[in-house]
Amino acid sequence: MRVKAYLSLFRVQALADLQYRLAALAGATTSIFWGLVEIVIFTVFYTYSERAGAGIPAGLSLNQVVTYVWLAQCLFSIQPLALDSEIQAKIENGNVSLDLARPMDLYAYWFAKIAAGRLTPLCWRGLAVLAAGIVMPAGYRLGPPASWANLLWTLAAAASALFLAAAFGCLLSSVRLSVDWGSGPVFMLILVSQVLSGSHLPLQLWPKAWQRWLFLQPFAGYLDIPCRMYLGSMPLEQAAAAIALQWLWIVVFVIVGRLLMARQLARIVVQGG
């Protein structure tokens, strides 16, 4: 009964977001451009640098990096780079009290909304980026997955990534609930998540000594783990463990988010009117 309400909330929000097809495609042009620039930079490093072969011991050839860039640009859109704008507005103008008046669990309500907001960019924008990656000329092209099994694991990891992004988005909203702290803490959390996700630089190309921690930290789950599965740069025997790791962090984010929200709601300040 309850779950149905949240599912329909999710559906309504997702359908509303999907209306903005043109806006999504305009966003895709930026992703495609960004991807091309990154590919140019990687190609220069892999071809003309002093230690041009240094990517291979890290487990990534140039072709794999190019594929990584496209996948990352596609999956990048699920990362929460800001608070859900509607929720932020509600906190700032006091309409959060309206949400509190609903006979619903606020966390689940926001989770449904945020999850929808994370999924929809993937549909238009993400697919447009992938399509662009496939039709690029050789040297810039998105390569095929290592195997069909790899592709299936990638899809499973990407689906978990969506939940991870939604759980983190909810955590951010809970942090933002204390109006008198402003947006500073949220801004910093977002920055950390962005850097550690591997969207700036594939985590495998980071220094060798950090690899273990980089893999275990929560934000590898956004796109680095799905990308490793697609490229086959991670043995498939580890795939199940990697997805379990994603879910471990989802559970942690949900628990912390809920606790924090409960604490914040106990002394919430509603401003505006």
């Binding site: 490093f45 702290w181 402003g182 500073g184 220094p207």
Partner: peptide
């Protein structure tokens, strides 16, 4: 805002993270 002083920490943070990718690339590839 209570957290305004966090701004100084943010400054430090951005200064380190913004160029991190390119620094790591140069340290690996020369």
């Amino acid at each position: 805002y209570k957290g305004w002083f966090l701004m100084t920490v943010q400054v430090l943070f951005t200064v380190i993270t913004d160029p991190l990718g390119i620094i790591l690339l140069f340290s690996r590839f020369g």
